[in-house]
Design a protein around this nucleic acid. Structure first.
Lengths: 267, 267
DNA sequence: TCAAAAGTGTTTCCAATACACCCATGA
DNA sequence: TCATGGGTGTATTGGAAACACTTTTGA
C-alpha cells in the first residue's frame, strides 16, 4: 500500500515520527430480540459508572472481520451469526480531548488494575485510534453474555433504555440502527434473531420495532409470504379464545437465496 | 475507547507488545464522467509498473474524513466535492504475504528514493494496516490531476480499461462501484459529476454507465423530472438536424433536500 | 354466541413499463 | 419533406395500501 504516502512530502513526514500512536479497534453492536423489544448487549465496567459497547483491539495477524467475530464470540459464546461491518469512526483525539470525563474515569480504573496490564493500558488510552463498527443480529436466548476482565457485567439493554455510553458509543449505536433500517429493504432478517419457530405476529413486531412504526397486519403477511422464505408449520394453541396462528420457520435455502439476490421492497 | 481490550485476557496482551505495527490509511476511488465514460483517477508509480488508487496515511491529529478529503484535494485540487466512506479493508498481512511481487517492486522503488524518506518508507511497508475506502464524484473537467512524490503520472482511466492495480486495489474499486450502484436508489447523483448545464441525455448516459444497463428514454426523463431537482434552461442548438434538447441545471435547494430525505426508486 | 385474533379477499391507487405519437431541427 | 432525436401522452401491468370479510378458538 505504498501510495499511502503519495499525499505527503518530506516535510509532512516529520509529524508522523511518533509512529506508535495509532491503533485499530472494532466495536460491536450486538442486537437481540426479546419480549417484543430490541435489545443491545452492553458492558458495565468495574469501579466506575461506565457503560460501553463490547469491542476489542485488532491483533497484528488478524483480519478485521475476524476481530469482530472474535469479540462477538467472546461476549456471547455464539459462533454462527449475522455479522456485518457498517462504518469506521475516526475522529481525532476522541478519548483525551473530546471526552475528558471518560478519560479520567478510565484512568482511575486503571489504577486498580494489576500492574502487568496497567502498563499496557496506560499507553493505549492516550493513543489516537480508529474503530470499525460492526453489527450483529443474534438469538438472545442462545447467547451467553460474558463480561471481560475490565467489566463486571454484560447485559442485554432495551434499545429504548440505553444509558449514556463511553465516548462516542451512543453515536455508533445510533448509526448501526439506521444502517439496519436501510438494510431491511435489501435483506430478509429474523433468521438469526428469532427462535426456530415463530408466529407471523412475532416477525411483524420485530420489523415494527426496528423501523419504529406500525405495519398493517394483512399486508405484512402477504408481503413476507410472497418472498417464499417461510415454511408453514403446525398451529400454535395458546389457549386464548381466538383463532390459533400458524407457526413458521425459515426455509434456509430460499432464505439464503434471497439474501444473495436482495429484495426490492421498502416498508 | 477502553473497552477495546475487553476481549483480551492478560495472556493475549502479550502478542500486542510490538505496538507500532499497525497504521491506518485511506484510499480514494475518485470518479469522473467524460465522453460518455465513467473514469477513475489512478496513479502510475515511478520506476516500476505499478498502478494504484490515490491514498494516504491518516495523521495523528486528523479526522478520518479529513484525511480522505485531503488526499482528494491534493490529487485533484478540488475542494467542494461529493465524498463518502464506503468500507474499511483489513485483511492481515496484505502487503508482504499476499502480494510478494508488489512488495518486491516497492522495495526496489524505495532503493531509488532519497534516504530521508526511505527510512520511513521501509518501516511502513512491512507494517500491517487497515485502509478505509472512500469514493468521490467529481467534475472531471474541473479537476487538475497531480502526482505525488512517489508517482510519475496521475491520470483518468476508463472504468472499462483499468489495469491490474497494487495489491487489493482492484477489489476496493469494485466494491466502490457496487456501493455506488446501490446508492443510486437513495440519492440523486450528477451534481458533482456533470457540468453546470447538461442535457437529459447526458444525465441518462451517466446513469446507464453506472448501472451498466440501458434505460428507456421517455421513462427516465419523467422519473427524474418528477424528483423536482432540475431547472429547465434554454435549448441547446447543436446544429444537428433534429429537435434541440433542453439544457438542465440542478436546483441546489431541491437537490440537497432530496439528498437528505432520500428517494425511493430503483432502476 | 360472542370477542378476539388470524387468515384471506377486494378495491383503489400509483408507479413502472412499453410504446405510440407529435414536435423541432437542419439537410 | 425527410430523417433524426426530443418531448409528451397513453394503455397495461403489478405492487402497495386500506379495509372488508371469513375462519378459528375458548370463554
Amino acid at each position: 500500500m505504498m501510495e499511502k504516502q503519495e499525499g505527503y512530502n518530506a516535510a509532512v513526514f516529520a509529524d508522523r515520527i511518533p509512529k506508535s500512536l495509532q491503533e485499530n479497534a472494532v466495536d460491536c453492536v450486538i442486537l437481540g430480540y426479546d419480549e417484543g423489544e430490541l435489545k443491545v448487549l452492553l458492558l458495565k465496567w468495574k469501579y466506575e459508572d461506565i457503560w460501553s459497547l463490547p469491542g476489542g483491539y485488532i491483533k497484528i495477524t488478524e483480519d478485521l472481520d475476524a476481530a469482530a467475530y472474535r469479540v462477538l464470540q467472546e461476549r456471547t459464546g455464539l459462533t454462527s451469526i449475522f455479522l456485518e461491518q457498517f462504518k469506521t469512526f475516526g475522529a481525532a483525539l476522541r478519548q483525551t480531548k473530546k471526552y475528558p470525563v471518560d478519560y479520567a474515569k478510565i484512568s482511575r480504573i486503571l489504577d486498580k488494575i494489576p500492574l502487568k496490564n496497567k502498563e499496557c493500558n496506560l499507553k493505549w488510552i492516550t493513543k489516537r485510534f480508529l474503530t470499525t463498527g460492526y453489527f450483529a443480529l443474534v438469538n438472545l436466548e442462545a447467547a451467553n453474555p460474558t463480561p471481560g476482565f475490565l467489566s463486571e457485567r454484560c447485559e442485554w439493554v432495551s434499545i429504548n433504555a440505553v444509558p449514556q455510553l463511553l465516548m462516542d458509543h451512543n453515536v455508533i449505536l445510533k448509526t448501526a440502527l439506521e444502517y439496519l433500517k436501510k438494510q431491511l429493504n435489501y435483506l430478509p432478517i429474523g433468521k438469526s434473531l428469532l427462535p426456530e419457530k415463530f408466529t407471523m405476529q412475532d416477525l411483524q413486531k420485530l420489523y415494527e420495532v426496528i423501523i419504529d412504526q406500525p405495519l398493517v397486519r394483512s399486508n405484512f403477511q402477504r408481503k413476507i409470504l410472497k418472498l417464499g422464505i417461510l415454511d408453514r408449520q403446525e398451529k400454535l394453541m395458546t389457549g386464548a379464545s381466538n383463532k390459533a396462528p400458524y407457526l413458521y420457520s425459515f426455509n434456509t435455502e430460499k432464505y439464503d437465496e434471497v439474501v444473495k439476490k436482495g429484495i426490492g421492497f421498502s416498508f
